[in-house]
Nucleic acid binder design. Structure first.
Lengths: 352, 352
DNA sequence: CTGAAAGCGCTTACAG
DNA sequence: CTGAAAGCGCTTACAG
């Protein structure tokens, strides 16, 4: 058993004064309340000796605020989500908030239950990193109606009335696709990772569509989930192979590179590849550094936390989208020549 | 303002019964206490209508346990720490605990203060991911003496009496160095990233020393912090260049590869390189996949949480080291031929 | 100048 | 069978 920290009541008993006097002293309000210096000294001495540590939960009991935000992730592993988490935590700390992390990887079904538990622990609200496009939207709406601060980040639900902070998915994808088109590509395949029907993934696809139709190009009919190397390889082996492969995220693009190489195709000469998110670390030591669309994920986390704080003050009940800029970063996977590495200079100084 | 959730007292007023009756009903103990079914039904109906959500903080008030663990990281960015965090969270959830994350990247000076704040919020204890070898050890000892559950993970302090879960650093490094020696290398440089004096980094260096002296090889006198590409390049340009480069972590090894390439040296033919931790993602698409020592970081996090739970039951006050196995994974950066890629088959199926 | 008391949301012995 | 009361650790009006 960890020893319970000493309480004001116990200090009061030891000092032979009332508990309220202890409160006054330890909050440095004894002068205003004109307690004697002798009492103040005695109380302070005991508190120090016994490692008194004020219990902030009590404040939560009175105000209803714990200054804790819960962020719900699918997982915090990988190169993507941790950056969002780091951004949330940094901003939270700046505002006296703490970040509670919950992963719901095992299954979205458990999410509603987990949210209830978090609310019973009186987190001030939730930051959601949606991965499942459909599930639990009714639950989110219910929570908002109950006055629970809720913010989405990375993706969003158009019909859930809360702030959401996401990247400029459509514009970014439009830029990436246009880049491939301007390189001369006409047969451009588009592939996504599940879940394709997440809103931000739909936005990306729309960006692709607009770029293609804007250039009078045919939309490939075979858009589908290509979430494994073998699936991509099978796809590339069919007749009428595309000359470029646009993936809706970096991991899909990596799979395209792997599949191309396994078929003896050179990237970018035989197949140009581009991804989305620019979240891969150490890209400069890749065989084929990946062209991608960069979004500042840390900033996304920070912004989400700022919106959260606003919701804590007053639940807006409105759907409000904030989009961070998305900028195309061209690297060897799409550049004309394989040797034409485009360095962005980041990732080199990173440490463990 | 978020609406405060309804309380038992409010329900009692609405139902016209005592608050204790409400407590009994909502905890499903009204039968045992022989309350009338009419009252039970009325209370349950109101609770449901008003979205009653029990306040678990109260339980913490009574028991002194919040079922919250705080994990203190230098940062949660990168490919390394998030895996530890994920392991902690998974195991915490299995035991009804929640994980509070705090990053102290801005400076270890703030750590002591942050710990105090966390304890005032009554987290049940701390899991520490030490990065600074010296700072705050007195503070940790003080906390343990106060009965605060504390567990170290990833690194440890021999003179801080708490459990620590780390990798088999010395054995792992011994295996990696022996591997290089058996490839025929005699002039093997050793380089680390700061902080070199962290205990687990010292353990790794000892493994290197033992392997070298065990084979009658001379220890390079120029062991130092080589934490940038330019530093490594400068090092490699000196006369008597080593034929192999042993880094105490993967990022240092990457810098060695970058530096070698910038000097026109081929890896592994002109310079063999090995790292430690095997934490890099997507290694199979690297120009030179890295030989490294694999440690299961998720498992490390899980185990740390298990030890934490034991400390919550009873602060052991003893220094107890748990070491996870470290296994050498040979890849192209040290293999005889550049083409001899050694695939481990992981990382391919990973998704965003 | 100082202490007693209410109240935050609950649980749990205790009284009637 | 049901309600009043204490207590967890505090803050803050209020009483003397």
């Amino acid at each position: 058993m960890s020893k319970k920290s000493i309480s004001m009541t116990e200090i009061a008993a030891l000092a032979g004064v009332s508990q309220s006097a202890v409160s006054l002293v330890l909050n440095d309000r004894w002068r205003a309340k004109r307690l004697s210096r002798a009492i103040a000294d005695r109380v302070i001495k005991i508190a120090r000796e016994r490692n008194y540590r004020p219990n902030r939960l009590i404040h939560a009991l009175r105000t209803g605020r714990t200054h804790t935000v819960a962020a719900i992730f699918y997982t915090v592993r990988g190169e993507y989500y941790p950056q969002i988490a780091a951004g949330i935590e940094e901003e939270a700390k700046r505002h006296g908030y703490h970040l509670l992390i919950s992963q719901v990887m095992r299954g979205i079904e458990e999410e509603a239950g987990e949210i209830e538990v978090l609310l019973e622990r009186r987190v001030d609200g939730l930051i959601l990193v949606p991965r499942y496009p459909v599930a639990n939207r009714d639950n989110y709406r219910r929570l908002i109606a109950q006055g629970i601060p809720l913010v989405c980040v990375d993706s969003y639900f158009p019909d859930v009335p809360c702030p959401a902070v996401v990247g400029a998915d459509e514009e970014g994808m439009h830029a990436a696709t246009t880049h491939l088109i301007e390189l001369g590509h006409r047969r451009i395949a588009y592939a996504g990772m599940a879940p394709l029907d997440a809103t931000h993934m739909k936005d990306r696809y729309n960006g692709f569509l607009k770029a293609m139709t804007g250039h009078g190009l045919e939309i490939p009919a075979d858009f589908k989930v290509l979430d494994s190397v073998t699936a991509v390889a099978k796809f590339l082996r069919r007749p009428g192979r595309p000359t470029a492969f646009m993936a809706d995220n970096d991991y899909g693009a990596l799979n395209a590179i792997r599949a191309a190489e396994s078929l003896g195709l050179r990237v970018p000469d035989d197949l140009a590849v581009a991804g989305f998110s620019d979240c891969l670390a150490n890209e400069d030591v890749y065989r084929v550094p990946l062209t991608s669309v960069h979004v500042d994920l840390m900033a996304m986390g920070r912004l989400a936390m700022q919106h959260f704080l606003r919701e804590v003050e007053h639940v807006s009940g409105r759907h409000e989208l904030t989009r961070l800029p998305a900028s195309l970063v061209v690297r060897a996977s799409s550049a004309g020549k394989r040797s034409a590495l485009v360095h962005r200079g980041h990732g080199q100084a990173s440490r463990k």
